[in-house]
Design a protein around this nucleic acid. Structure first.
Length: 899
RNA sequence: GGGCGGUUAGCUCAGUUGGUUAGAGCAUCGCGUUGACAUCGCGGAGGCCGUAGGUUCGAGUCCUAUACCGCCCACCA
């Protein structure tokens, strides 16, 4: 067989394996409804991918969710469960449109100049050019999704779904159109939903000024605002009904500064007497609270801003001015008119567009809304009655809170990229036709004079249908019937409201079923200092570069092991390096096993005789399998990865492999059974590791398999070698037979002894090449130590011919370096190196420490602990105490023996 | 204003249902390279588990309060 490279060469492996997996159809569900021997009795495991923006580029957030979902999918696939991971992309209305607009801008074009049709064509062209980039990048991460089922939110099928959903909601009266206060983005020139506005604390001013009484220019009400330009739209001044300072003004008229419009002073207990001047100017058309007050008091609604946030004709002398220029101008004019009281620096929350960053203006606008209350009720119920599990659990509370206070959802957007609202207005009879099919006439008066609504739907409207629209809904396709509802929704907690809650509500509304059983929420990826990564900060890590340099497995393992459910993850390149090293470790351990396999002779006639190390590693292997299973079940994927890492490196590689070298040299029979153990443990380890690091494990496993097959009869899993690791059987732990704990304990003694001897060697500066003699007084551990002599000698680098093991020794050697471990006494006759005083010192230090422990345990065992703690716990402590006491006696003897 | 998360080794983080000497990686110190691996091995040093109380035989783990950091939600001009 060809020698494997010394280091794991991911660059030659990844692409090849991915192409092979995909070609062999391993990513497709083993129980596909489209397949001939489809068995509907098997319950599938299904994930729909959180669709990335079609024109986006890969970032670490993608790497995390892809790795996490791929892990879940691979794990279930290996368990033999029919598994489907549906991939796809999102048209991402605003984001994509902005990107294309920017590109056009560079060519000196604007979308308005281009017109809707041509602009849409431009976006589609862009989509075709870059749309596959992100999915290619996701492939690089090793994502084992079924690409034949890939969907795009603007696909024909999904568009049908969107339309169906809209029409159904409309017919049910849950969608309505009307003028309402919405958040307007002056830069994007569209309405945005409440969720798309973020409030940022910023320094500003609180402007105090006079509202003069109409009938008495000397009297005024002092009012404060942060936005003086909105004075132009004021239609009342409100005071608290019980505020003595102002009761006399209630019902009177005041004059709007500069414009000199007369407006009433009204009483409303919304007003906070303590704040500012205790009186409030009311701009019903440009403030959500004032909007409510305006409705309550039947005030006039005066809009003062146009789509670009320019003052409109209602702004009198200021019309045509930018909103911020107007703020300055009007304040200056008011100063001149002696209407200004003061301005005060003031920190306040400013609404900014999540997308464009500009300040959002509350405005009254005619838009489409979904009445969310009825949908939210079902959504709440599904989580509260356990139909849907949210992990970590604490997010259920946040989810509940949001749904309990849900507001109607503004779903129309004044964009050109997205699902056009399926509504037609009749120019003749004004009737509105809402239809699944494009109508060619008004459904009421049959007039041909109809035109479609210009707006498109919020991107999240289509995303909300994702888990079922991707499976063919509203058609009852075989996929929909079999794979829906899906199983797992894995995504970031940052889109719990945007996406998860809406999928739940829509799922229940449209399919009458919760769209998934479990919601697993991961955190945000941050840099090594916990700072959110961004290109402008220059602290972002490009996953593609990382994969180029360190391999996909290293990146995947890093994001997986670094993450705890619901918590943010700090990532640094150092961590990825460490995991690249791990992949290399796995590779080289594999190389070692495979290399020895070839040297192995025929299968022995003698039945296996397992050594302590064999039993130990096998017992630990099975413990690990159980632990991983438990952790996976509890969604503790990171912890599972860590445990596999530790087992593989610090137990299998550091200890068993080293001992295997000795055992292989011992005898042909021993060599055979040692190699058998090596293969078993490696095979199982690779299986456990595969969902984390699919590439190195698949590659190595392939080599292991062919090496085993070339040495016929040497080893094969009970169920035979599968075609590929990706579809190999997930390990199940062997039942506990009762011997395991003792073997583990015994092996731990050997480890302790070896470690201590190595420690002494380091302390004494004995060069690693020098073999030293040892006298070991084993006492009751004689059997174990005799049995393990070769191991101890090799690992501690002892002189074989000069090393003796006794049960008891009357005349213990004096003036030597000595140790007591687990009741075993060790004498290292290092005549020329002995320094009696130093030895005494060392023993004294040790005795001190042991005495402390003895005192501690004696106190403990004399406390109520002995009575109240479970017997097994007490017994454990007693044993420890005995051990310490025994050691103490022996150390004292050794001390006395030093001259 | 309400809610949530974090606070454990120099740094970044783990830590099952409370079980009695608290773990990893990186960094650091010492020794070591001809056959699995220097992307390495061996050994070491390094921690009143934010603070103060409480529950308990026993608390990093549960409860209460508190400080600091971060996040989410909310209409205070």
């Amino acid at each position: 067989m060809k020698e494997l490279p010394k280091a794991y060469e991911f660059s030659t492996v990844e692409e090849k394996l991915y192409a092979w997996w995909e070609k062999e159809g391993f990513f497709k569900p083993s129980n596909d409804p489209k397949a001939p021997n489809f068995d509907p009795a098997k319950k599938p495991y299904v994930i729909s991918i959180p669709p990335p923006n079609v024109t986006g580029g890969l970032h670490l957030g993608h790497a995390l969710f892809v790795a996490m979902e791929d892990l879940m999918i691979r794990y279930h696939r290996m368990k033999g469960i029919p598994t489907l991971w549906v991939p796809g992309t999102d048209h991402a209305g605003i984001a994509t449109q902005l990107m294309v607009e920017k590109m056009l801008e560079e060519k000196g074009l604007s979308r308005e100049e281009l017109g809707r049709e041509k602009f849409e064509a431009e976006i589609w062209a862009w989509k075709h050019k870059f749309g596959s980039r992100i999915t290619q990048q996701i492939r690089r991460l090793g994502a084992s999704c079924d690409w034949e089922r890939e969907r795009f939110t603007l696909d024909e099928g999904l568009s049908t779904a969107v339309r169906e959903a809209f029409v159904r909601l409309y017919e049910k009266g849950l969608i309505y159109r009307g003028p309402r206060m919405i958040n307007w983005s002056p830069r994007l020139k569209t309405a945005v939903s409440d969720l798309e506005v973020e409030y940022v604390e910023e320094p500003g001013f609180l402007y105090y000024f006079k509202y003069r009484l109409a009938d008495d220019p000397e009297e005024f009400i002092a009012v404060a605002t942060t936005r003086p330009e909105t004075i132009l739209g004021d239609t009342a001044v409100a005071v608290h009904p019980e505020d003595e300072r102002y009761t006399k003004f209630i019902g009177k008229k005041v004059l709007v500064p500069i414009l000199n419009r007369e407006i009433p002073v009204i009483a409303d207990d919304y007003v906070d007497r303590e704040f500012g001047t205790g009186s409030l100017k009311i701009t019903p058309a440009h403030d959500p609270n004032d909007y409510d007050i305006g409705k309550r008091h039947h005030l006039e609604f005066i809009s003062i801003l146009d789509k670009n946030a320019i003052i409109n004709e209602n702004g009198g002398p200021y019309s045509g001015m930018d909103r911020f220029a107007c703020r300055k101008a009007i304040w200056k004019d008011m100063q001149a008119a002696n209407l200004v009281i003061k301005e005060q620096p003031y920190m306040h929350m400013v609404p900014r567009s999540e997308r464009g960053g500009e300040i959002i203006e509350p405005m009254i606008s005619t838009q489409w809304f979904v009445n969310m209350k009825p949908l939210a009720e079902r959504g709440l119920e599904a989580v509260n009655n356990g139909q849907i599990d949210i992990i970590p659990e604490r997010f259920s509370k946040i989810y509940n809170n949001w749904l309990e206070n849900i507001q109607d959802w503004c779903i129309s957007r004044q964009l050109w990229w997205g699902h056009r609202i399926p509504v037609w207005y009749c120019s003749d009879c004004k009737h509105i036709t809402v239809s699944r099919e494009d109508p060619d006439q008004c459904e009421k008066c049959q007039s041909k004079n109809i035109h479609q609504d210009e707006d498109v739907l919020d991107t999240w409207f289509s995303s909300g249908l994702w888990p079922f629209s991707t499976l063919g809904w509203p058609e009852k396709t075989p996929d929909f019937n079999y794979f829906y509802p899906t199983t797992m929704m894995e995504t970031g907690y940052d889109i719990l409201f945007f996406w998860v809650a809406r999928m739940i509500m829509f799922g229940l509304e449209f399919t009458d079923q919760a769209p998934f059983e479990t919601v697993y929420l991961h955190g945000i990826i941050r840099d090594e200092n916990g700072v959110k990564m961004s290109k402008t900060k220059g602290n972002s890590i490009d996953p593609l570069e990382v994969m180029d340099e360190m391999g996909t497995d290293a990146l995947r393992f890093t994001v997986l092991v670094g993450s705890t459910p619901g918590n943010d993850t700090n990532i640094s390149i150092k961590k990825v390096e460490a995991n690249r090293n791990f992949a290399n470790k796995v590779w080289n351990a594999g190389r070692f096993v495979i290399g020895n396999l070839e040297k192995c002779p025929e299968k022995p006639i003698q039945p296996p005789e397992w050594t302590l190390a064999d039993s130990w590693i096998w017992a630990r292997m099975n413990e690990l399998i159980r632990d991983v299973e438990r952790l996976f079940t509890n969604h503790q994927y990171g912890e599972a990865g860590r445990q596999i890492y530790d087992f593989f490196w610090s137990e299998f590689a550091d200890w068993y492999l080293e001992i295997a070298k000795i055992q292989i040299a011992e005898s042909p029979d021993r060599a055979f059974y040692t190699v058998q153990t090596l293969i078993k443990v490696l095979d199982i380890s690779l299986r456990l590791l595969h969902p984390f690091t699919p590439f190195v494990t698949e590659e190595l496993w392939g080599h292991l398999k062919s090496a085993c097959q070339e040495n016929s009869g040497l080893f094969s899993p009970k169920h035979g070698w599968e075609e590929a690791l990706i579809i190999a059987k997930w390990p199940t732990a062997q039942d506990i037979e009762g011997w395991e704990d003792q073997k583990i304990k015994n092996f731990n003694i050997i480890q302790e002894i070896v470690r201590s001897m190595r420690n002494i060697r380091t302390e004494k500066r004995i060069p690693p090449s020098k073999k030293i003699p040892a006298i070991i007084v084993a006492g009751e551990k004689l059997d174990i130590l005799t049995d393990q002599a070769a191991t101890i000698i090799a690992l501690a680098n002892l002189d074989k011919t000069e090393t003796r093991i006794f049960q008891h020794l009357e005349d213990k050697p004096g003036n030597q370096t000595t140790m007591v471990l687990s009741g075993v006494e060790i004498f290292l006759p290092l005549d020329d190196l002995i320094d009696v005083d130093a030895e005494k010192d060392r023993i004294n230090r040790e005795l001190n420490e042991i005495q402390n422990q003895i005192t501690r345990l004696e106190t403990l065992l004399n406390s109520p602990f002995a009575e109240k703690a479970p017997a097994a716990v007490v017994q454990k402590e007693k044993e420890k105490l005995n051990q310490f006491q025994e050691t103490s006696v022996k150390l004292k003897q050794q001390f006395d023996n030093l001259a």
